[in-house]
């Protein structure tokens, strides 16, 4: 297998859907603040994780456990427990970001394979080399800000595997260091595992459409027939220079299906699909489509029309190849 397809699962049933649809690996997290998708009703108990790993292994797939938030001072216990539970469940790897968590894993769980989360925002040979040399990290998930050419250059200078996002929510911020959500709500993906925590999100139907509020701030409005996006500040609509615009980022989903061949040529080991917060319908459809993309490239077959097939699932009704094709840098 040349390219590994790493797929999201927010629930045990989504894990089974991903495996059944052709995922080579599934990533998921425990139901607490130790992972960056800490939403109500989502994620796995330790017992569910063990069953999930067994199901995946029985079907030839791997399970990677995301423990990728940053513990606050004096609150290390949940991360310690999560690492022990991942090893107990016989996970194939853990995805970590915090140096203390990496150190604890390397010291106390030497049998666990360590992947560096995108939350660590490591995108230089020096940073990646540090994590590889210090903690024996085997794979790094690349931030979504690099072009294909930059990834190819990076891969020539490092000795660890790289994993690149190819579909789903697009975060252009320095991940693990973004404070936009904290600014408005006091909670962030970095420490609490939630960007725009749902208890702060409100959708209000108004005469001309839907207003989106975060912690009392109106951050966007969608007209009645206008496609909507996630309620995050980075995708909010702001007035700047006299113009009302999505200043930081448009509501749009990444779709790099057309670049999978080039990413493989650039030395990328694994392709990641974002969306642990999404439903089984999304997981099954996206995994099936990308598995077809990967299989077609490996077999030299006709390209799969992934943009067309996945058009109904994307945020804001739009798709982009993101920074992979960015010209202006």
């Amino acid at each position: 297998m040349a390219i590994e397809l790493v797929c999201p699962a927010g629930t045990p049933s989504a894990l089974r859907s991903a495996v059944d649809a052709g995922a080579h690996a599934v990533y998921c997290g425990f139901a607490d603040e130790t992972n960056a998708r800490n939403f109500p009703g989502l994620n796995f108990s330790p017992a569910e994780m063990t069953k999930g790993v067994r199901y995946a292994h029985d079907h030839g797939a791997k399970v990677l456990v995301a423990i990728n938030t940053f513990p606050k001072a004096g609150t290390f216990e949940p991360w310690r427990k999560a690492l022990a539970a991942a090893e107990e469940a016989q996970a194939d790897a853990v995805i970590l970001a915090d140096m203390a968590v990496l150190d604890h894993a390397a010291t106390h769980h030497p049998g666990l394979r360590l992947h560096l989360s995108v939350q660590a925002a490591a995108n230089t040979p020096e940073a990646i080399g540090f994590y590889a040399d210090t903690f024996n990290v085997k794979r790094v998930v690349l931030p979504r800000v690099l072009s294909v050419e930059e990834i190819a250059k990076l891969n020539k200078e490092i000795d660890v595997e790289t994993e690149a996002f190819v579909f789903g929510g697009l975060c252009p911020m320095t991940e693990g260091r973004c404070s936009l959500s904290s600014y408005a709500t006091g909670r962030s993906p970095n420490l609490s595992g939630v960007c725009s925590p749902p208890e702060h999100v409100e959708y209000v139907e108004e005469a001309d459409g839907t207003a989106v509020r975060l912690a009392g701030f109106t951050i966007d409005r969608f007209g009645k027939d206008e496609a909507a996006g996630y309620p995050t500040l980075c995708k909010g609509c702001f007035v700047a220079g006299g113009k009302s615009t999505h200043l930081f980022e448009d509501p749009v989903s990444l779709n790099a299906a057309g670049l999978v061949g080039r990413l493989a040529d650039a030395g990328v080991t694994a392709l990641k699909i974002e969306g642990r917060q999404r439903g089984k319908g999304y997981v099954a459809e996206v995994v099936k489509t990308f598995r077809a993309v990967v299989d077609a490239i490996e077999a030299g077959g006709d390209p799969v029309k992934a943009e067309q097939l996945l058009a109904g699932l994307v945020e804001g009704g739009r798709q982009t190849s993101g920074a992979y094709r960015k010209q202006w840098r």
Partner: peptide, 15 residues
């Protein structure tokens, strides 16, 4: 579970 709630929301099928 055959449909994705986020997708229906993005497409304004549900509110």
């Amino acid at each position: 579970g055959s449909l994705d709630g986020d997708a229906l929301f993005f497409n304004r099928v549900i509110s």
